[in-house]
Design a protein around this nucleic acid. Sequence first.
DNA 1: ATAATTGTCGAACGCCCGTTCGGGTGTTTG
DNA 2: CAAACACCCGAACGGGCGTTCGACAATTAT
Lengths: 226, 226
Amino acid sequence: MGKTIPEQPFASRAKDDRSTAHNSSYNERNDAIIKAATMLIARDGYEKASMRAVAAEAGVSPASMYHYFDGKEAMLFTILFRAFSGLESNLRMKTHLIEDPLEQMRIMIAEHVMFFANDMDGLKLCSHELDSMRGKAYEELHRIRRSYYHHTREIVNNLVKKYNLKVCDSHVATMSLFSSLNWLYRWYDPHTSSRSPAVLGKLFFEQFIGGLTGSELLQQDNGEET
Amino acid sequence: MGKTIPEQPFASRAKDDRSTAHNSSYNERNDAIIKAATMLIARDGYEKASMRAVAAEAGVSPASMYHYFDGKEAMLFTILFRAFSGLESNLRMKTHLIEDPLEQMRIMIAEHVMFFANDMDGLKLCSHELDSMRGKAYEELHRIRRSYYHHTREIVNNLVKKYNLKVCDSHVATMSLFSSLNWLYRWYDPHTSSRSPAVLGKLFFEQFIGGLTGSELLQQDNGEET
DNA sequence: ATAATTGTCGAACGCCCGTTCGGGTGTTTG
DNA sequence: CAAACACCCGAACGGGCGTTCGACAATTAT
């Protein structure tokens, strides 16, 4: 009993960590289930996407699903964990050796957009279905998410410091940036749009930096209103 | 048969338009249901929020719900219709007599944030649950949403024209603005935050205008990269 | 007073859900 | 060769869902 929440430090594994075994058929099926679940949950939402539908899409029986995952929630956890930690570790890796915060910022935005373009459904779930998780699983995902936020926020702070920007509220600025990135799944499809992910990242970067540095259009009567 | 989708021009009414009648108890119950449904769907999501739970929250029996709404989807439609059309008509009203697009933009952002602060759950549903609608109901809501977008986009275009901004992509700029506004429900609570809606609107406005006009930080080597 | 309409609800219907059970296959291990 | 194990699934369980039905009160119209 108590199968739904694994015991100790929580990780991205499925039911057991068979990733070291030389059994390839297991991992193939596992990935097929993850892929089917990601697509269907992105399309229909977590509650509406049924285990039966995921099983049919993945080509297995509903009962076999429980060979690979403890349950529906554990399945969603695996999807979100992979996406969130991939995003976070990629950011850490790509900005590690860069010193200029402006360049770090450019990389962060470009990498996030690229990451989205490569896994639209996965990142949609990160934005849309995180609240479907409860308890320790939610906390673990939220921890990674917060780490990603802190990393970005630190870049913003260094940016403000280095270039002496008179930014009023770096929290709001950072949240606005995340808004643009997380809202992508609502309107942007790299396979359809005329804008490439690289171009879009550049636009976001310029907008964000412009938003941080302010505009001369607003210099006229700053300070009061009737 | 065919009760779920009303026949002709679709409107924000419940089952019948009893708003002209002098029966106050009917409208009170109706509003109580809408209020309960908005809260519960915002908290649990459309699929997870059950008619039984909404009925209990509103203080009626599950069966009585169907005196006021044709079904669950019609109930959500009413909520979304009120929020969307309120947002849209308010924008039209407030910018109608203003000529300067800069001032129009300031008003649009400030009004949207105010609107959110006054109906957080409603606007959360607009962002989160629109996809739960199907068919004609979805199309009607989408039409209002698009009208709101077009109105805003027009302001942006006039802004660019009047002040000779060299903005690269006004669609991306407008979507970024909507991102910031629609993402509010994820992190901002006017009752808890130290920032008032007015302050937040001002910050958004400044960021957006700064993002449109660009930054001198980026002037160095624009045009190529290795 | 009587008929018609409106509002209310307990009970139930039929459906789909996540999940489990028990028993099948193969395949590896001693 | 037999035991152990990984894998797979048809069938079922218990429960919650949206919705409907039919009867009963309350109000309004005639």
